[in-house]
Amino acid sequence: MARKTHVQTQINGDSVEFLCEARQSLLEVLRDELQLTGAKEGCNNGNCGACSVILDGRLVNSCLVLGVETGGKVVETVEGLAAPDRLHPIQDAFLENAALQCGICTPGFLMSAKALLDNNPNPTEPEVRYWLAGNLCRCTGYDKIVRAVLDAAAAM
């Protein structure tokens, strides 16, 4: 058995401790150790964005971050996006715009869109397309996703 490291971090506002092997990615830790399966594995090499989370305010592919690197950091995942009694405006905009079909890429797009709007509350369409280019969607052709992010920006 590979040796495990104790890691203390903050996830979606909660202090979280876990044990992980040095080779385990943050994605693996979230999904397999903490049962936070909202972040998805589409490629495991940073090309599809389905595992996007926000780490200390910065958008990352969680498959490219090691679990042990997150000690003392702040992690935001799709599970922390909605308030207990209402969805986040980006989530509402995705539903109202029918911006998902199969939904596997949706958590990644939501986190990517949140990171964009946190830094640029009024993006133009080209800015949205540029920012979201790291997230692949095979179902929608992106049209309704781009509209949803623009709508969410207007609503926030």
Partner: peptide
């Protein structure tokens, strides 16, 4: 929809 935008839908 809500399951799929909150990460709760189980694939």
């Amino acid at each position: 929809g809500v399951d799929k935008v909150t990460g709760r839908a189980l694939y």
